[in-house]
Every structure is written in C-alpha cells, then in structure tokens.
Computed example of a mutant assay.
Amino acid sequence: MEIRNAANPRDVKNYDTSRLREEFLIQGLLVPGEIKLVYSQVDRMIAGSVCPIDPIVLEAGKELRAEYFLERREMGVINIGPKGVVTVDGTVYELDTRDGLYIGMGAKDVIFSSEDPKNPAKFYLNSTPAHCAYPTEKIEISKAEPAKMGSQAESNQRTIYKYIHPQGVKSCQLVMGMTILEPGSVWNSMPCHTHDRRMEVYLYFNMPEDAVMFHFMGEPNETRHIVMRNEEAVISPSWSIHTGCATSNYTFIWGMAGENQVFSDMDPVLMKEIR
C-alpha cells in the first residue's frame, strides 16, 4: 500500500509539476491481475482498484495494523468494467458495469473476481475509517439517485448519481457517487468550491486514450493544474478546489471523507475570485 502524506497549502503553491503529480495524482490503476491501494493521510482515505483475473483477496497489510482490512473501516466499490463479483463473508454480490457495493465495518473476508477472467472487471474503491457498522448493500446504477445539472451552453450538462449518502445507502462517513457528462460537455464542478469539512478523491474514466483532462486544484487564489488521462485519480484536500476540463466528455467517480456527509455542504467560490 502506497502512503501519501497530507500537504499544507502554503507549501503546495511552491510545488513544480513533478511534485504536484507525485503528491496528488494516482496512476497505475485498473491493471489486469493487480490490486493497487493508496493511503492518503488526508482524512485517512484509501483509494484504489482491483482488476482480477484470478480471485483477489483484500488484505489489511502492515500499514493498517489491523487483523483484517475492514476491522475499523468501511468501503465503497463501483465496477466500471465488465461484470464482476465481490464476495463478502461468503455472500456473493454480482456487479454489472456501474453497479456499486457498500461494505460495512466488520466484514472480514472480501474477495474480488471477474465473471470472465479474459475480460476482467474493473473495481474502483474508496475506504474510510468507521466507528459504527452499517449493513453491506448492493447499489444498482438503475436505483441510484440521479440529478441532472448544468447546460449545453455552459459545456457542463451532466447527471449525478448518488450511491452512498445519508438519504440512500448509509455509511459512517463515506460519501460516494458518479457523474456522467453528456457529449459536448467538458467541465465539471464549475463554478468551483471547497469544503473544509471533508476531502475528496476523483477518478476520471470513459475518456479516449488520447484525451487529456486538466484537473484544477489549489486554494481559490492560488490555483494549479494537473494533466490527467483515462482511469487516473486525484486527491483533493479540503482546502483545495476540485474542478476539471477535458478534451472530450467523460465520467468520474467522487468519494468524500470527513466530518460532514451533507452533499450540498460546500463553500462556493465566485468566478471573479479565482486566480
């Protein structure tokens, strides 16, 4: 498991391109036959992926100092690839493309597998510390709460699907969902915002291999950007804006951890204040 330290915004404004990418960009996700986990010290979020050819068992590793991965944690999983299976303490959950799964604290045995090993599933996951247990529950994309936002004129026409949230599948602190942009729309989360009460991780996908995403981060008056490509993720500390513009439309998964689960709890940034 890779460890990423928390970063102070007064230091980040002095980072060059390589340092920004080293601290915040997550690459090498969704490699067939591999599991990749990145532990961010920002709100103790773990982001990662499992792309199983043979079944892959989720293990705690020495970094968690736990008997098993979810001993003191909860987890959200969304499959962005072909059909796959997550087995939790002997119960089988079949996940089609864009189906999700919430796994509550205390689940001991978690196994990821693909229906067709030659065409493996692509499980993306977020995990946060938990202090109470909620039931493990499958989330079908057809039953996730959708909200249509934006407009074609503003190049941000999109549908937001909430998977794990207080009015849906409940969790201790994890909030997770997916946003799908319509063809011709390229902007997300603009006008932008911050939320001091929680951090966020974005996974960008469904982009052509030659497409480029410009993800903007930093304090509103000290913005920076990170160039990203398909199936890469980025860590956004609570003090940072998190918005992007790509050379095509795309889909992204957002996962949040912190003090407040209210989706609308944001600190808006006026367009005239961005620098």
Rank of each mutant, 00 (worst) to 15 (best):
K272V: 13
L181I: 03
W239D: 04
K122Q: 14
P129V: 04
T91V: 09
G244A: 07
C132S: 09
M1G: 05
P117G: 01
E115I: 13
I241H: 00
D54R: 13
W187L: 14
P268H: 11
D109M: 12
G168H: 07
C132L: 14
D265H: 04
M178S: 11
R275F: 07
G100P: 00
Q27N: 08
L64N: 02
I139W: 06
G48E: 07
L64Y: 01
K143M: 10
M105Y: 05
T91S: 10
R4Q: 11
T91W: 04
P268E: 08
I26L: 11
E67K: 14
S49G: 00
G177Y: 01
R21N: 12
M149N: 14
Y39N: 15
K143E: 08
D116H: 03
E137S: 11
S18E: 10
P52V: 00
S185A: 09
V42M: 09
V42D: 14
N260M: 11
K36M: 10
P191Y: 08
E140R: 13
G106V: 00
T97H: 05
N221Q: 15
R44L: 13
P146Q: 06
R4F: 13
S18K: 10
I164C: 09
H193P: 09
E59K: 13
V269R: 14
K108R: 15
F263G: 06
G104Y: 11
M190N: 15
V262N: 15
P32Q: 06
G258Q: 08
F252A: 02
M176T: 00
G76V: 03
D99Q: 02
V201L: 08
D210L: 05
R197Q: 15
G33M: 07
K272E: 15
M217Y: 11
K138N: 00
R198Q: 02
M213G: 01
D265T: 04
R275L: 15
L25F: 02
R65N: 12
D54P: 03
G184I: 11
I56H: 07
A107I: 10
V234F: 07
E209R: 13
E209W: 06
G150M: 06
H165R: 14
E273R: 11
A147P: 03
G33W: 06
E154G: 03
C192F: 03
Y93I: 06
T194S: 01
I180W: 01
I180F: 04
L203M: 05
P237Q: 04
K83I: 12
R65Y: 03
I80T: 15
K138R: 13
D43C: 12
A121T: 05
Y93V: 00
T247D: 10
F69A: 10
K36H: 14
V85E: 13
I274N: 08
